[in-house]
Nucleic acid binder design. Sequence first.
DNA 1: GCCTTGACCGACCGACCGGTCGGTCGATAG
DNA 2: CTATCGACCGACCGGTCGGTCGGTCAAGGC
Lengths: 220, 220
Amino acid sequence: MVPTRDPVPPRAPDSRDKILETAEGLFAIGGYVGVGMRELATTVGLSKSALFHHFPNKQELYSAVLDRSLVRIEAAVNAVGTEGTPEEQLDAWIDAVVCTLSEDVPAGRLMMRALVDEEPFPAIVLQADAGLDRELEDFELRLAGILERFGALLEAGVASGAFRPVSIPDTLLSVIGAITFHFSSGELGEALLGESVFSRSAVERRRREVAQFIRRGLMA
Amino acid sequence: MVPTRDPVPPRAPDSRDKILETAEGLFAIGGYVGVGMRELATTVGLSKSALFHHFPNKQELYSAVLDRSLVRIEAAVNAVGTEGTPEEQLDAWIDAVVCTLSEDVPAGRLMMRALVDEEPFPAIVLQADAGLDRELEDFELRLAGILERFGALLEAGVASGAFRPVSIPDTLLSVIGAITFHFSSGELGEALLGESVFSRSAVERRRREVAQFIRRGLMA
DNA sequence: GCCTTGACCGACCGACCGGTCGGTCGATAG
DNA sequence: CTATCGACCGACCGGTCGGTCGGTCAAGGC
């Protein structure tokens, strides 16, 4: 092996990234069926054929968009680490996700849509499950990993007596709902808050409010 | 006025109701753009033309479906009344909504979709707002009414010292997210719980878990 | 010089979309 | 008996959907 730093051309063309970035915004607003390949192509500034040159079909493009958004969240929660008490880690997790969703504007709505759309996730329950007919997408596996780690954090907190003896799955769903819905609520959120949910002041307040809400909801 | 009880034929044909019922299920799964009038028609057992005989267009049919679902929730929370301490009323509200969503299976997902879809709700902030270009749909007004009453309940609790001094809009969004997402989460919820979120045992557990979670999250 | 390769385009395809239109049919009213 | 009316249907419309195909063009290897 020669020590060349990059076997592939030093810089992949950014058309693919631009497509994904644009698609994230459009899919977040319109959902999978609500965004056409033509619309996406003209928004990006390419022809429709060019999209099919970079991605085999619409489904795969969509999956790539989903996974790309989830990677950012995964990176944020991975940066938290595993040190500190369950309470401290819980706070850090919540803050990491809230900050990520507040900076990647389409991500929250995109995630919420993906979770509500029927397709996804016979994953999670897997771990040792074998008889799975459908192969899992990157997105599902990534989400399963994140949720598994968060679930373990909750369990540790319950075991140590720091948290109430809650149902872990129910709490998972409550927390996902409370955090993600806020950044998916669009006009409703804006109408309630009197400002965009992504405005600086709204985000600062949200970080405090939702962290307190969840922490208190879990405290023994 | 003669005392005839029914000026219209004593029983309106139930085709319209059947359309709405079927459409609720389909829209919950596929979303507005994901359900075609043909598909809906054949599922109901009518021709596509018959749908346009009962509703002027797809949008109005969808709005009617949304409003119909929200009416049930409204009825449930109206039945709670205004007696008792804020804590008691809070518990009663949560239980009313959770029970309604657990019985009307498509409703949660339908509501979540409607809330995430960009269209709705420059309402709520209204109340005295005049310069509103778009006329509001029944659905939006009904939701605004429900949220206003729930917001008032929270405010009363904060004022009386029963609840922490939380941000009312943030809490509204947290509670909506925590309750509604659970019943919208489809396969994810089922994978986490190991059973359908609508199964008897899951619903019973959910009633306890989410009520405790929210109550503790708000307690002073 | 040529030849490959990847990025990209315009034209086209069958399927399906929401919506319209003319007409049928049974019940009800006069 | 007939006129009316609401419920319903099949055929059809223009338009859009995801996806394919043949081809152009510039860059790089040999």
